[in-house]
Amino acid sequence: MTLMDGKKLSDLKKSQIKSQVEELMKDKNARRPKLSVVLVGNDPSSELYVRNKKKACEMVGIIGETINLSATCSAKELTKVLTDLNNDSEVDGILLQLPLPSHLNEEDFIQMISPDKDVDGFHYINQGKLLQNLPTIYSCTPLGVVELLDYYKIDVVGKNVCMVGTSNIVGKPLGLMLLNRHASVDFCNRETKNLKEHTIKADILISATGRKWLITEDMVKNGAVVIDIGTIKDPITHKLYGDVDFENVKKKASFITPVPGGVGPMTIACLLENTLKLYLNHKNNCK
Score class of each variant (00 low, 15 high):
M1I: 15
I204Q: 02
I169L: 15
P235E: 10
M163N: 04
N160G: 00
D88V: 10
T66E: 15
T237N: 04
C188I: 08
L149K: 05
K8D: 09
G264C: 05
N284A: 12
G128V: 11
S102Q: 12
P115A: 10
T66V: 15
I67R: 09
V119I: 14
I229R: 05
K233L: 14
K159R: 14
S46K: 05
L69Y: 07
N42C: 12
H198F: 11
V145G: 05
L3D: 01
N248F: 05
N105W: 02
G242M: 10
N160R: 06
H182T: 09
C286L: 15
T275E: 03
K28E: 10
E217M: 13
S36I: 12
K129R: 15
C57W: 07
N168I: 14
L143T: 04
K80G: 06
P235N: 10
S46T: 06
L179A: 12
M177N: 02
I17G: 06
N126F: 07
K250Q: 11
D5C: 01
N248H: 10
K250T: 03
L82I: 15
E247S: 10
N248V: 03
G210R: 04
E191Q: 13
Q111F: 13
N126Q: 08
F109G: 07
N194M: 09
M4N: 04
Q132L: 15
H103N: 11
I256W: 01
Q127I: 14
G171V: 11
S45P: 00
D234E: 06
R51P: 00
I110Y: 00
E23V: 11
H238K: 14
L149D: 03
K212V: 06
N105Q: 13
K153G: 01
N248G: 03
E197F: 01
S254F: 00
H182L: 13
K283C: 06
Q97G: 04
L48P: 00
M112C: 05
P142L: 02
Y49T: 08
G6R: 08
A56Q: 09
S114G: 09
A183W: 05
I125C: 02
G158F: 03
I125Q: 09
V21F: 02
K14W: 01
E77K: 14
N284W: 05
V263F: 04
T275G: 03
A71D: 13
A183E: 07
L149Y: 08
T136M: 09
I154Y: 05
S19N: 10
K18S: 08
M266N: 02
M112G: 07
G158Y: 07
A224D: 01
V21M: 06
D88I: 12
N87A: 12
M112I: 06
T136G: 07
G223Y: 03
V164L: 06
L9K: 09
A30C: 07
L85F: 08
P33I: 05
K34F: 08
G121L: 11
I200D: 01
L85H: 03
C270H: 04
L24K: 09
T72F: 12
L98K: 00
H282F: 11
K55Y: 01
L96F: 08
G210Y: 02
Q20S: 06
S254C: 06
S139I: 05
I17L: 13
E90Q: 15
V157I: 13
K7D: 03
V91T: 15
D43E: 11
N168V: 14
G144V: 10
K26S: 10
N133M: 06
W213K: 13
N284F: 08
V161Q: 05
D245A: 12
